[in-house]
Write a protein that binds this DNA or RNA. Structure first.
Lengths: 135, 135
DNA sequence: CAGAATCCGGCGAGATACTG
DNA sequence: CAGTATCTCGCCGGATTCTG
């Protein structure tokens, strides 16, 4: 019986869970995905990631820096110039995340089709429930 | 000039972004990671994922079902028995996510070390700022 | 330009109670 | 057992203002 169940950790406060929560973060994911090799400035990232607020980008970048995934380089010029770059660790994560992005691009059609089908099934059921006394 | 920047979409409301938000969801990630081949019952998933509330597990499973990633099978017995299983699409995502989990396991040490180092640097700086007039 | 600090409103998510 | 339904609170995150 090759009952090979991968049953990893499980506790909410284990390291893997805590790190996954970070990695699975909406903005973190996008930053890591965008920072490909080259360095990027703060405002450049801000423009590249539509919808991110200044505050959330700052917070996200600080977390990533703390996790050792990006480096933050401040150039003492005026106006200030701050550049962000993936560390080696960050780049190894980048590659994993990139495969996730690629997966999403490849299957977005199947997913939106599934959503449409599901919604139609659901609204159809609701329609039937609306008039259960019919006939 | 091989300025090969992968610059994918960018808009907050594009399909890839919307799907990534779902995929990058904390509970979704864990459910997909846990559902490996075999089917699992609701309560089984609930026990396996420490910290998830009944409500959030229900919501998460509904979303995954809507996205065509899991199937939901209700057995009309009493007490009710509901089983969840990955679809083919869901399993292909499972493999990507699994590589993410593996990455996390392999690098959790580096990350926690980086966090410790960062925190020490930070508190040290704060300590210096606390007594700038010293001497 | 790249933040830090502050304020605050919405809603995500937990707790609880009820049901087929 | 596997959900719904409802209420409520916390805090996430946006908007704004102020610096080096």
């Amino acid at each position: 019986m090759d009952d090979q169940v991968v049953q990893w950790d499980t506790r909410a406060d284990c390291d893997v869970r805590k790190i996954l929560d970070r990695v699975a973060d909406k903005w973190s994911l996008l930053v890591i995905a965008l920072l490909d090799r080259r360095t990027m400035r703060f405002s450049e990232l801000r423009r590249a990631i539509d919808g991110v607020s200044q505050r959330m980008l700052t917070v996200t970048l600080r977390q990533l820096e703390r996790d050792g995934l990006v480096t933050r380089t401040v150039y003492p010029v005026v106006p200030p110039r701050v550049e962000y770059e993936l560390t080696a660790l960050g780049f190894s994560l980048h590659e994993v995340i990139k495969s996730l992005v690629v997966w999403t691009e490849e299957h977005q059609r199947e997913i939106s089709d599934a959503r449409t089908a599901y919604d139609e099934r659901t609204t159809e059921e609701e329609r039937l429930l609306q008039a259960p006394m019919a006939r």
